[in-house]
Simulated assay, not measured.
Amino acid sequence: MNLALFDLDNTLLDGDSDHAWGQFLCDKGVVDPVEFKARNDAFYEQYKAGTLQINEFLDFVLAPLASRSREELMILHDEFMNDVAFGMVNEMGKQLVNWHLAQGDLCAIVTATNAFVTERIVRYYFHVPHLIATVPALDNGQFTGKARGTPAFREGKVTRVNAWLESMALDLGCFEKSWFYSDSLNDVPLLEVVSDPVVVDPDAGLRLRAETLGWPIISLRGRDEEGAGEGIILKA
């Protein structure tokens, strides 16, 4: 059995679901459309620059969950799925996931975006059985606005993947091959511990790291007419 791990935002999705959810809340008038948008955009730029302070960001992004009932949030999320997330799903990303599933690989999506936003995206659009995401804390069924446990961000992704595997009496050494697909320099810690790191439409920092280390670089954005289910190899 082999292991296939996938980043979600800007890898399997054309865009960032965390940022898109924040913009959706602005558009719906759930949050202040000026102040919240400004902070949402600023945090996203910090993420792309590799300077994001994850706990500060989580306090911001999870706060709206604590101000609404679960019923209200699910209605909003239904709209988000139909109006926003559906249009972000990358068809070549789906093909890549399906190829690994068809091989019988153990598959999981590993994302810093919280599980409330991502769980149904993963389940409905990619049919991946396992999600490793940042967990929003609950108290008597109500979101508290805080995160629980280790956020699935940078080194936290490695911690969370190892804990998930350990819960099944496994570790990375149990697999002949282990892949991780990602676009972001923030994901270097997990890319470094799998046997087969694969860089997908990378940001500038990750592209430089991949070229230096000889990691494969692929595109899931149709940049080459010879693309196949495993992605388009741009640089081996």
Results as ranks from 00 to 15, higher is better:
residue 2 N to Y: 11
residue 2 N to R: 13
residue 4 A to S: 10
residue 4 A to Q: 00
residue 6 F to E: 00
residue 7 D to P: 06
residue 8 L to Y: 02
residue 9 D to F: 05
residue 9 D to R: 01
residue 9 D to K: 02
residue 13 L to H: 01
residue 13 L to Y: 01
residue 13 L to P: 00
residue 13 L to C: 12
residue 19 H to E: 11
residue 19 H to V: 11
residue 19 H to L: 15
residue 20 A to Y: 02
residue 20 A to E: 00
residue 21 W to H: 02
residue 21 W to A: 02
residue 22 G to D: 06
residue 29 G to T: 15
residue 31 V to N: 07
residue 35 E to Q: 12
residue 35 E to G: 12
residue 35 E to Y: 01
residue 35 E to N: 12
residue 39 R to T: 15
residue 46 Q to A: 13
residue 47 Y to V: 07
residue 50 G to N: 05
residue 55 N to S: 14
residue 56 E to A: 14
residue 57 F to V: 03
residue 58 L to C: 09
residue 59 D to P: 10
residue 60 F to R: 10
residue 64 P to N: 14
residue 65 L to I: 12
residue 77 H to T: 06
residue 78 D to H: 12
residue 78 D to A: 08
residue 79 E to Q: 13
residue 79 E to P: 02
residue 83 D to Y: 05
residue 86 F to K: 12
residue 89 V to N: 00
residue 90 N to E: 03
residue 90 N to L: 06
residue 91 E to T: 14
residue 92 M to G: 15
residue 96 L to M: 09
residue 98 N to A: 15
residue 100 H to V: 14
residue 101 L to P: 02
residue 101 L to H: 05
residue 101 L to G: 06
residue 102 A to H: 08
residue 103 Q to R: 13
residue 103 Q to T: 15
residue 110 V to Q: 00
residue 111 T to Q: 03
residue 112 A to V: 10
residue 115 A to Q: 13
residue 116 F to C: 07
residue 119 E to F: 04
residue 122 V to H: 00
residue 129 P to L: 06
residue 129 P to S: 11
residue 131 L to T: 06
residue 131 L to E: 05
residue 133 A to L: 09
residue 139 D to G: 02
residue 140 N to M: 01
residue 142 Q to N: 15
residue 144 T to W: 04
residue 145 G to F: 02
residue 146 K to L: 07
residue 149 G to M: 07
residue 150 T to G: 03
residue 151 P to A: 15
residue 151 P to M: 05
residue 152 A to F: 01
residue 153 F to N: 02
residue 154 R to A: 11
residue 160 R to I: 06
residue 163 A to C: 11
residue 163 A to M: 14
residue 166 E to M: 13
residue 169 A to W: 08
residue 170 L to R: 07
residue 172 L to S: 03
residue 172 L to N: 04
residue 178 S to C: 09
residue 179 W to M: 09
residue 180 F to W: 03
residue 185 L to D: 04
residue 185 L to F: 04
residue 186 N to S: 15
residue 186 N to V: 08
residue 186 N to W: 06
residue 188 V to Q: 00
residue 188 V to P: 00
residue 190 L to E: 05
residue 191 L to V: 10
residue 192 E to N: 10
residue 194 V to G: 05
residue 198 V to K: 00
residue 202 P to C: 11
residue 203 D to L: 06
residue 203 D to W: 00
residue 204 A to M: 11
residue 205 G to Y: 00
residue 208 L to A: 15
residue 209 R to T: 15
residue 212 T to W: 03
residue 213 L to P: 00
residue 213 L to V: 14
residue 215 W to S: 09
residue 220 L to G: 06
residue 220 L to T: 11
residue 221 R to H: 07
residue 221 R to E: 08
residue 223 R to P: 01
residue 225 E to H: 07
residue 227 G to W: 10
residue 227 G to H: 12
residue 229 G to N: 08
residue 230 E to P: 08
residue 231 G to Y: 01
residue 234 L to A: 07
